[in-house]
Design a protein around this nucleic acid. Structure first.
Lengths: 96, 96
DNA sequence: TTGATAGGCAAGTAGCGACTTGCCTATAGT
DNA sequence: ACTATAGGCAAGTCGCTACTTGCCTATCAA
């Protein structure tokens, strides 16, 4: 649903997670945690990030694949392209 | 800020308002109210819509011009185009 | 001027959402 | 078998936000 995508994008931490995944796909929960802490100084618990990833996944923005005791997360930009074109009129002038 | 744009888009009622404005620009508060009620069956007070319009306006998604006792609202899609390209890699394959 | 229309301001309420804490499961290494 | 690592589940707290209610201002028509 578009509803889930918009709600997923509403949170700044979740957008940061997408930022990290667009840099490198296939990161685990712990990798994302340490990245958010070191690079952005966010002091969040592991569960907070886990819940954010669940929201992103149910919105279709992130796919995950389990492998042993690791769970790798991949970015999926497909839902992003759909939602915004909703309000872009077909005659909207493109940047020349 | 992108923050304001994402938060503005997070609410389904505000997205409906954008839907109405993309159909016809320059609507007043009362026009938007009656449209939301009749077309979508939303039972919202006038102030609720007014507050939603304020959020959309401070996000830059809606511009308003006062004229006498009327206030006309216009859609502005410019912020929309910026926000999503953030996660679209340059090598993202376009639909052929 | 009076009444009706279009809109604004402010306080209060209720529910959702982000985050934490505590405990539990499963896989890997030794 | 035992320990450490990677992750999950569930309940509880707290703050934000959507919405309402009540009252006030400004413009237009008669």
């Amino acid at each position: 649903m578009a509803e889930d995508v918009f709600k997923a994008l509403a949170d700044p931490t979740r957008r940061r997670i997408l930022d990290e995944l667009v840099e490198r796909d296939g990161q685990t929960l712990f990798e994302i945690c340490t990245r958010l802490v070191t690079k952005h100084g966010l002091g969040l618990s592991r569960q907070a990030i886990s819940q954010h990833l669940a929201v992103l996944e149910s919105a279709g923005l992130v796919h995950s694949r389990r492998q042993g005791r690791y769970k790798f997360h991949d970015l999926n930009t497909e839902p992003l392209e759909r939602i915004v074109t909703r309000w872009l009129k077909p005659d909207t002038p493109e940047a020349p």
